[in-house]
């Protein structure tokens, strides 16, 4: 990390399965419990409330206009494209460590209950996109009886 940073405290952490396996082979004594904490988890977190479903998508350093949210049935997809320039692209700056995601990223989740997509609301605060979708009331979901002629 150049002259300013000599090392970090817990080594390399990456979502890459191959790298994970490689590091794990170097430290075979580490337990699965520890690896569960070290591995990156989904950026999306779904909370089901009595009358709504709240989906939190953690993606720091963006603007609300960087996001695109799509809901189809019980599938919710969030796309994000960081449009600002990478700090290293300005002037004579150079980066010695680059772990943040630049460019495009997409993640989908299947919601556990039916929702009313048309009434969904989304808000971006402190690096967290929060999408609230009202739940379908009983008898209001999209099941439709089709008459056989």
């Amino acid at each position: 990390m150049g002259f300013l940073m000599r090392r970090n405290d817990r080594g390399i952490v990456s979502g890459g399965v191959m790298l994970h396996d490689l590091v794990r082979s170097w430290f075979p004594d580490l337990t699965d419990v520890l690896w569960k904490d070290l591995l990156p988890d989904s950026r999306m977190h779904v909370k089901v409330n009595d009358d709504s479903v709240c989906v939190q998508f953690a993606f720091a350093g963006c603007k609300p206009s960087d996001f695109e949210v799509e809901s189809s049935g019980t599938f919710l997809t969030v796309r994000v494209a960081r449009r600002e320039k990478h700090p290293s692209e300005n002037g004579e700056k150079r980066y010695s460590c680059c772990e943040r995601i630049w460019g495009e990223y997409q993640e989908s989740v299947k919601l556990p209950v039916p929702v009313i997509s048309a009434e969904a609301k989304a808000k971006y605060t402190d690096g967290v996109l929060e999408i609230t979708l009202p739940r379908c009331k009983s008898g209001e979901n999209s099941v439709k009886q089709i008459e056989v002629l």
Partner: peptide, 8 residues
């Protein structure tokens, strides 16, 4: 995750 950018 972190990015480190060095300047003069």
């Amino acid at each position: 995750v972190a990015d480190i950018v060095e300047e003069n």
